[in-house]
Simulated scan of single mutants.
Amino acid sequence: MLARRSSPKVTDASPTHEELLDLVAAAGRVADHANLAPWRLVELRGDDRVRFAEAIGRINGTEPSDKPLRAPLLIAIVSSPTPHPKVPTWEQEAVASGVGHILSLLLDEAGYGVIWRTGPFAASPEIADLHGLADSEKLMGWLYVGGRTERDTPRRQVDAGRFLTRFPTAD
């Protein structure tokens, strides 16, 4: 995990659907209060990405976008909350986000280049319809997945002491 980097440029290699199923099964082990599984993933390959690119173009009033074509596999991360008296929506969205992050780590470990992309289209009703989202669901972004290109220089390590503090003492 210390070597993980976002990969904005990837090759045409990608995991098969069957390989992806194994990784999703592992990512689904994320902590999930009440075991609601408030998430799902949408796999976009080939012409799916072209339809996505065309929809972005329609929304922008331009030619189709090249962005969805930058990786051979896009995985939409969807928060799919269930009403629950003890588990608020924000916590269920955190579970969906956790699945997306763990999946990105698993893909990286499997040798693929991955970057999580968001932006204004994640909140677009047309894009939500294109992805088959229900009214209660929320698009959290897309993992762009492809073959890893040569890694850049290692990332600067996190200064853990800056982020880990002690509980305040009572005065």
Rank of each mutant, 00 (worst) to 15 (best):
A96V: 07
G28T: 04
K9P: 02
V42L: 01
A3H: 13
R51T: 01
H131R: 06
G111K: 07
A3T: 15
I59R: 02
R29V: 07
A76M: 08
R151Q: 15
I127G: 02
V78C: 10
L21S: 14
R155N: 14
T62E: 12
A31E: 08
E137K: 09
L69G: 03
R58H: 13
S6W: 02
G141E: 04
V114E: 05
L139D: 05
D47M: 03
L139Y: 02
V10E: 05
L21P: 00
P38G: 06
G61S: 07
E91I: 05
I127F: 06
K86M: 11
H131N: 12
H84W: 07
D129M: 06
D129L: 07
W142F: 15
L41M: 13
T82D: 11
M140V: 15
S104A: 15
A27R: 01
T153Q: 14
W142C: 07
V99C: 04
L20K: 01
P68C: 05
D108M: 03
L105K: 04
P81S: 12
L133T: 09
R155Y: 07
A94K: 04
H84F: 10
E63N: 10
D135L: 08
P88G: 09
P15G: 07
S124E: 07
F121D: 10
F163V: 14
P68S: 03
A134R: 14
G113P: 01
V95M: 06
P72M: 02
A55V: 03
R156M: 10
E54A: 02
D66V: 14
R40W: 10
A37R: 14
V24W: 02
T165V: 14
T89W: 12
L20T: 00
V24N: 01
T118F: 06
